[in-house]
Write a protein that binds this DNA or RNA. Structure first.
Length: 590
DNA sequence: CTATCGGTTAGAGGT
DNA sequence: ACCTCTCCACCGATAG
């Protein structure tokens, strides 16, 4: 008895192929005996219909004997059983549906009315997209309602010209359906009072250790026994562990370092950043969002979110080319860096001339942990370049270097502070010695010609991410080749490096889900752990150790969707995992 | 070599 | 229960 569905199905197909091969000669006998009747499988039939019936009966028997019917029924039953009809939680931000007070005027066809169009016509229509052609000015005025024509547009459709954004403005930039009466007040209170009070707690508790410290003597350090206990007890059963934090698909997720309160931040496809105070119960009775506060600091995908080490600033970067820092002290989302093209009006900007316009965007960033305040960062682009932005003193681009011909999906700085790992569409993880990068006088001209210290290929397929573990011992990459590749001590090797361990993992997320990116625990010192989402049903978050063994697949009642982007809370004392899904919901496992 | 197309994929929200 | 929308994700094939 074959063990699996696929084996049963394969056996059935083999049986059919065999039968088909045996009856090859049927065909020739049909043709020869036409005058005396119809021959099939050694028998003569007077009528053609009888022969056909016999043939059909033979085929039916063959199908039944093959077991394909049973296999297909079993498969169907399994799929039905796996499908959960459970509706996602409605906790979190809720869209306030405004009942249309008066129905909108019915649209009339100007073509039928015989009206002349203002020189505009649809040039191309494919895949649901329309390209208009005609006089540019008339297109603009005709396609926009009149009162919108006035609204100013900014470079790359960013939300403003780069000036600071107050909490109030960041809330008011939201679509009206997310804003209710108490929204601004609640957001101001949370950002201005709740968060700062946590940061004071952080600075007392946080072990001030540099990432290079080899053996931290922190009291919060987890003993092996209690870690495995915590791994075993991780759960997603509590109905309060899920909440809608942003309106759209989650691209980035991060936890505030406070160990007293759990604050999770998520960034979505449309440039929203949501902060969720997970355990707030009735924090503000005028706000019904279950502790979620939503902002709009960007206009497009928020690719990555990161808190600085002490938790007083949140840095976010977006496809719109801007990097913003929310500073708890100033209570403003400051634009700390932004790319611009070479129009002279942007000459004074740090990112002047960097943006090539066509198919150019900033893809990913990672903080430079050598500077604790979060004022230095590495930024990668869709063009395969990487730059180092240093915002101390006046601010400068330390380097701007071409690392690849294709988009770079992730950057990771080794704990030694000298080696940078890049990974992306070119299908290779590459390690670079950043001391070799030339500082560039002209930011717009990126340097070329540097060679990586070490590379690792992933079967020609693109790589979603490659990150160094906190200890710096391993690197884990998530590939479109459907593997998690773990490599030990890659930073000590050169040339072509082979993965230490390859873990088979379905990373084929398709176009509607954010890609998976295996993420390391940021602080655990005595063991490396990483978390990654997966496609398995029931929906699961996977927790692996540094050797690539699956410690735990966490699933449960409340985990109803694929968690594309996951991360850990940085606390060493308590293991907490969070995952974000394609509908803006965040799930907490603890 | 570059552009474009179809296929793949999961989930919510509306009717 | 069914239908529609998502559409700078990526792969592989094909056209120019």
């Amino acid at each position: 008895m074959p063990a699996t569905r696929s084996q049963r199905a394969e056996a059935a197909l083999a049986a059919i192929a065999e039968e088909a091969a045996k009856s090859e000669d049927d065909v020739s006998s049909d043709e020869e005996e036409e005058s005396q009747g119809f021959v099939f499988a050694g028998k003569v039939y007077a009528k053609y219909e009888d022969m056909v019936d016999a043939k059909r009966e033979r085929n039916r028997q063959m199908l039944e004997k093959s077991g394909l019917l049973e296999a297909s029924a079993a498969l169907r039953d399994d799929l039905e059983a796996e499908k959960s009809t459970k509706r996602a939680t409605q906790r979190g931000i809720r869209s306030g549906k405004r009942k249309a007070s008066k129905p909108l005027p019915r649209r009339k066809s100007s073509r039928i009315a015989g009206e002349e169009s203002a020189g505009i016509y649809i040039e191309n229509e494919s895949g649901g997209r329309f390209t208009f052609a005609g006089a540019a000015s008339s297109v603009r005025s005709a396609s926009l309602p009149e009162d919108d024509v006035e609204s100013e547009r900014f470079f790359n459709d960013r939300i403003n010209d780069g000036s600071d954004l107050t909490v109030k403005e960041a809330v008011e930039g939201l679509d009206a359906k997310w804003v209710k009466e108490g929204t601004v007040t609640a957001a101001k209170k949370f950002m201005g009072e709740v968060l700062p009070s946590l940061v004071n707690a952080v600075s007392e508790v946080t072990v001030k250790r540099s990432p290079t410290a080899k053996s931290p003597t922190s009291v919060a350090s987890v003993s092996m026994a209690s870690l495995s206990e915590q791994v075993g007890s991780l759960s997603v059963e509590d109905e309060n562990c899920v909440s809608k934090v942003v309106p759209d698909r989650i691209y980035s997720i991060a936890c505030h370092p406070s160990s007293s309160s759990l604050i999770v931040c998520a960034g979505d496809k449309q440039g929203h950043v949501g902060l969720w105070n997970v355990d707030s119960r009735g924090e503000d009775e005028h706000n019904d969002t279950d502790g979620v506060h939503l902002f709009k600091p960007h206009s497009r995908v928020v690719t990555h979110l990161e808190w600085n080490r002490c938790g007083n600033s949140l840095i976010s970067a977006s496809y719109d080319g801007s990097v913003r820092l929310f500073d708890l002290e100033s209570q403003k989302f400051q634009e700390i860096f932004a790319t611009y093209d070479d129009s002279s009006e942007f000459k004074t900007k740090l990112g002047y001339g960097v943006d090539n316009g066509y198919r150019y965007w900033t893809q990913y960033f990672c903080l430079d942990h050598r500077s604790a305040d979060g004022k230095c960062l590495f930024l990668s682009t869709s063009e395969g370049t990487a730059m180092h932005v240093d915002l101390r003193s006046k601010g400068q681009l330390t380097f701007h270097q071409k690392l690849s011909e294709k988009k770079i999906n992730s950057l990771s700085l080794h704990s030694d502070g000298n080696i940078l790992a890049s990974a992306g569409l070119d299908g290779a993880v590459k390690l670079w010695d950043i001391r070799k990068f030339k500082s560039s006088k002209h930011a717009s001209k990126f340097a070329t010609g540097c060679k990586p210290i070490a590379t690792q290929q992933s079967g020609g397929k693109s790589i979603n991410s490659a990150f160094f573990s906190a200890s710096g011992k391993s690197i884990v990459s998530t590939t479109q080749n459907n593997y998690l590749d773990l490599t030990d001590d890659m930073h000590k090797q050169s040339g072509n490096v082979k993965a230490t361990k390859k873990v088979r993992h379905d990373n084929h997320t398709g176009r509607w889900l954010s890609t998976f990116m295996a993420q390391w625990h940021p602080t655990l010192s005595n063991e490396d752990l990483f978390v990654v989402g997966c496609m398995r049903r029931p929906r699961t978050m996977e927790l692996y150790n540094g050797q690539g063994s699956l410690l735990r697949g966490i699933h449960g009642e409340q985990l109803t969707a694929v968690c594309s982007r996951c991360c850990f809370h940085p606390s060493e004392g308590r293991l907490i995992l969070v995952g974000g899904n394609s509908s803006g919901r965040v799930t907490v496992a603890r």
